[in-house]
């Protein structure tokens, strides 16, 4: 009997997790410990290489190469109204856009750079006195279109920044009690205000040392804020410039119609 029961017990060894569930749990554990899983990474590479974004990139790249370097060069120099201008905006720049990092900030920077490019084109046309009504309309449309894209990209950056701040506050809520977390968040938000307030202090040395220690404590946050502010002001400058040039275009248009009369 003893032999029998031992045999039965030994047969119980056949009960197992099964490959499927074993792999599933392993994947959860890898996520939990923060290690990259082989399956996930290979899927990502495959997915990335065949993503819609890359497919458009491949197609655009193929067309660009097919058109040949002369066309590309001609397109690079093209201005609104030129034959190759659409090649520049719809092929070359589209290819460039595909290779810009997918994060909102590099994308906003790139879109802003394109607004600058559109403005420069309009200025070149203006200098070369080739600003016919038709080309002027194209230039203006291109500027508006590009400015819209830049604005959208900037809005995305702002949304991402806001959600990061929210995540941070949620994490703090998880780590500390609610009043502690609220206090820490408001302290972070007030750091810059505190520094400004301290500028009014009489004792400059004392103020500087306090600033230094505060800046050291919050260096990461301040760096982020500074970078964000720099980017915002760059974009703001571009939009201001855009408004100026549109106004300039309208003034010139009015002058010319007066001369014509």
């Amino acid at each position: 009997m003893k032999k029998d029961i031992v045999t039965i017990l030994k047969s119980m060894k056949e009960v197992s997790l099964g490959e499927k569930h074993k792999t599933e749990i392993k994947k959860h554990l890898l996520d939990h410990i923060g290690a990259p899983s082989h399956t996930t990474s290979s899927t990502n590479w495959y997915g990335l290489l065949w993503s819609h974004q890359f497919k458009v990139g491949y197609a655009a790249l193929f067309i660009t190469l097919s058109l040949g370097s002369t066309v590309v060069f001609a397109a690079e120099q093209a201005l609104p109204g030129d034959l190759f201008y659409p090649v520049k905006t719809k092929v070359t720049e589209r290819v460039e856009r595909v290779f810009v990092a997918s994060e909102p900030e590099p994308q906003a920077e790139y879109e802003t750079k394109l607004v600058e490019r559109r403005l420069q084109e309009a200025e070149r046309l203006d200098r070369e006195e080739e600003f016919e009504e038709r080309t002027k309309k194209i230039a203006k449309e291109e500027i508006e279109k590009q400015a819209d894209k830049a604005e959208q990209a900037l809005a995305k950056v702002k949304i991402v920044r806001e959600s990061k701040k929210n995540e941070e506050s949620i994490q703090l809520m998880g780590t500390f009690s609610a009043p502690q977390a609220t206090e820490m968040m408001s302290a972070k938000m007030n750091v810059r205000q505190d520094i400004d307030d301290d500028d009014n202090s009489d004792d400059k040395e004392d103020r500087d040392s306090r600033d230094d220690s505060r800046k050291a404590r919050n260096s990461d946050d301040n760096d982020d804020n500074d970078n964000d502010d720099d980017r915002d002001s760059d974009l703001r400058k571009v939009f201001e410039r855009h408004e100026d040039i549109v106004k300039k275009l309208d003034i010139k248009k009015n002058n010319r119609s007066r001369e014509d009369r």
Binding site: M12, K13, V15, S16, L17, K22, I25, K26, L29, L30, I33, G34, A35
Partner: peptide, 25 residues
């Protein structure tokens, strides 16, 4: 930390079924 992670995964591979059985029974 990376070595610890690797060791952890090796341990999982070695004992996952035994621990599952233990829990199952």
């Amino acid at each position: 930390l990376n070595d610890t992670k690797k060791t952890f995964i090796d341990i999982y591979e070695a004992y996952a079924d035994a621990i599952f059985r233990h829990c199952f029974f």
